[in-house]
Design a protein around this nucleic acid. Structure first.
Length: 627
RNA sequence: GGCCCCGUCGUCUAGCCUGGUCCAGGACACCACCCUUUCACGGUGGUGACAUGGGUUCGAAUCCCAUCGGGGUCACCA
């Protein structure tokens, strides 16, 4: 099995058994929420499986003990489910939605689990040993400090560092001495023994990628803590779980030769149906996604944004480091989130001045710190995780559509000759293919996503909008929802027609309603608005407002349409009639400023209806009294 | 630095494989006008790109080469 030198390429056609079902997988590591880029990978894997009548699998890569958490794993599964990306094989997620039956996603119909790598360690151990016995891997005893020193020396000498194979290690020969040292408990890692053979990865998207012989050194496949490295676990699991197609981001391209090299060396064990050589799945490496400024999209963006805001506060003397820390502690530093053991420890420090100083200085980038700062001071952080977009009021269908266009394109035209850009998940399930995945990296254009989201909201029938709006509010803005419903039990249905075209996300729905969220005596009068609508022209607006107040006080039917005609009639009576009919502005603006303090509100009829008659009159009186 | 990938409007892209229908089409953003009781929505129009240089060809965004530029990767992270 070690004689592989004559194999110079891996044919994509080697996925041998035609009756073998096509299987794709998404394999996140549970170190936080689902990243928006990961969501695209998952979406493409899902779509490809659906299009091909295959299966889509989830595997959790939790071999990094320090950074993984069960909480994150569940969060990621929930994010996927929220997007509507459901897996056939993988961890089971119970979904309980109010009003509907509980649903389960996942399971192990093919009997290939468990799907958490941490639960598969005995399997990796068995294959590592088989490799050692075949002379294709060996225990190594150097300390990581020593290796680090060597690596630094090589870099200083401007040379490429490669691990140098010990002299007593020979390809294809079982090194019994090293193995017994390892078995006796001496601290060690296991390294793969790389043959100096040329490797060609036949990529479904990029074409043949050739790696010269000698580029691969003897990399680690099992860490000193006994856990497999990513490379090793992936190769074992993809084989044992029947994965036929690996679609992943291009950052993994350079790793693929390692995987191919291991697949050539590995043989299925008898307990897994062997002996039988491992197969090489088909690979497809997808373009990377960046920020608009070409930096990598990462959670560090949040730290950057929060840091910038804090620096601003410090330099404008709004806060000292001390008062900032006090404010954060008072706010309640430890809110539960997707903490990993590492970051939880950081947040636990509760924003001691020292801790904050380190964050501001950029020495640490803890997301939890950034998010607490943002929540405490109402700073908007850039969305980078699926959950961030959800919290900001994006719709899953808009995200799916946008992601589907990031690196893929249906290449179809509409009847009017325009490109087909708007599609849903079903469309992807029936039209997605690897042929039309691009090769160039893409920048994440938040504007376009926003526009897609606005279109999706606009396209929603009003009742659906009200439902979804309500559930978003109850999840993320319960206080605002309560206030609105206290004003008017039907507030949402009443305002939906005027809010829907004005909001690009659910979180934007609250801005136009700010006037109604404040108490009748709480809002301030904007001097510029007051001057323009009321006090200008010797107080023309004030006199209009007085007569409007009278008319409103006499109004019996407090509905948007009646209120609207009332205002129109007032305008007509005052003679505000031009070529194009009645000009209601001179009447509407004074009322608007009176009831909201500013010159901008949703349409007046609806706004007054939402406030109610008593509040409206009280607000006008307060305005009249103050100008 | 070694190895690898990529290069069409500001951004996402169509076109490239199978050269001519492309002085390059769409979308987002931007600008202007229209609509309009504010703010939005909507409508119409506009600005705006084949990285550069060589080839091949009657003809190149499309094929070839070079240069330049961008990115990825070289961990006991995944």
């Amino acid at each position: 099995m070690t004689d592989t030198t004559d194999r110079t390429s891996v044919s994509a056609g080697e996925v041998s058994n035609p009756s073998q079902p096509l299987v794709t997988r998404f394999a996140p590591s549970p170190t936080g929420h689902l990243h928006i880029g990961g969501a695209r990978t998952a979406l493409f894997c899902w779509a490809f499986a659906r299009r091909s009548g295959g299966r889509f699998m989830i595997r959790i890569e939790d071999t990094d003990q320090a950074r993984s958490s069960e909480e994150s794993a569940r969060g990621i599964l929930e994010d996927l489910a929220w997007l509507g990306i459901e897996w056939d094989d993988g961890p089971v997620l119970e979904l309980k939605r109010p009003g509907s039956e509980a649903r389960r996603i996942g399971g192990d119909a093919r009997g290939v689990g468990p799907f958490f790598q941490a639960q598969r360690v005995p399997i990796y151990d068995a294959y590592a040993e088989s490799l050692v016995r075949a002379g294709r891997a060996y225990p190594a005893f150097e300390s990581s400090e020593d290796l680090e020193t060597q690596r630094k020396a090589a870099i200083a000498a401007k040379q490429t560092y490669r691990y140098e194979r010990p002299a007593d290690v020979t390809p294809g020969v079982f090194n019994e001495a090293r193995w017994s040292r390892a078995c006796s408990g001496e601290k060690h890692v296991i390294r793969f023994l790389s043959l100096h053979e040329p490797i060609v990865v036949q990529d479904e998207i990029l074409g043949d990628v050739r790696i010269a012989p000698g580029e691969l050194d003897d990399f680690v496949i099992r860490k000193a803590d006994g856990f497999p490295t990513y490379h090793f676990a992936v190769v074992i699991d993809d084989e044992l779980m029947g994965v036929t197609h690996v679609l992943r981001a291009q950052e993994h391209l350079a790793n693929t030769p390692r995987h191919v090299a291991m697949q050539r060396a590995l043989v299925r064990l008898p307990e897994h149906g062997g002996p039988r050589p491992f197969q090489t799945p088909r690979y497809g490496h997808m373009p990377l996604i960046f920020n608009m400024d070409s930096t990598k999209m990462s959670k560090r963006d949040k730290a950057k944004a929060a840091r910038a805001a804090v620096k601003q506060m410090l330099s404008s003397k709004q806060h000292s480091l001390q008062s900032l820390g006090d404010a954060l502690r008072a706010f309640g530093g430890s809110r539960s989130g997707m903490a990993t053991p590492e970051s939880a420890a950081a947040t636990a420090a509760n924003f001691a001045a020292q801790q904050l100083a380190a964050f501001v200085a950029g020495d640490v980038d803890y997301v939890e710190v950034a998010e607490t700062i943002a929540a405490c001071f109402a700073i908007k952080l850039p969305e980078v995780n699926v959950y961030d977009f959800r919290r900001s009021g994006y719709l899953p269908e808009a995200i799916i559509n946008f992601l589907g266009l990031l690196g893929w394109n249906p290449g179809m035209k509409l009847a009017d000759g325009k490109d087909l850009e708007k599609f849903d998940q079903d469309f992807l399930a029936t039209h997605f293919g690897l042929e039309r995945i691009g090769r160039t990296s893409a920048k994440f254009d938040r504007n376009k996503l926003l526009s897609f989201n606005a279109d999706a909201i606009a396209a929603m029938p009003a009742p659906a909008f009200v439902d979804r709006w309500r559930s978003w509010l109850s999840e993320f803005e319960p206080a605002a929802l309560a206030k609105l419903q206290a004003r008017n039990p039907d507030a949402l249905a009443l305002m939906a027609p005027s809010i829907k075209p004005r909001a690009k996300t659910f979180s934007e729905t609250l801005k136009p309603l700010a006037f109604a969220l404040m108490g009748d005596a709480e809002y301030a009068f904007d001097p510029a608005a007051v001057s323009k609508a009321l006090t200008a022209d010797g107080g023309a607006g004030i006199s209009i407002l007085r007569s409007a107040r009278e008319a409103l006080a006499a109004c019996e039917d407090w509905t948007p349409s009646t209120l609207h005609s009332l205002i129109e009639n007032l305008a007509r009576d005052r003679g505000f009639v031009g070529d194009k009919g009645v000009n209601v502005g001179p009447v509407a603006q004074p009322i608007r400023v009176a009831i909201a303090g500013v010159a901008v509100t949703p349409p007046l009829g609806e706004s007054l209806a939402l406030l109610g008659k008593a509040s409206t009159l009280a607000r006008i009186d307060r305005c009249l009294a103050s100008v």
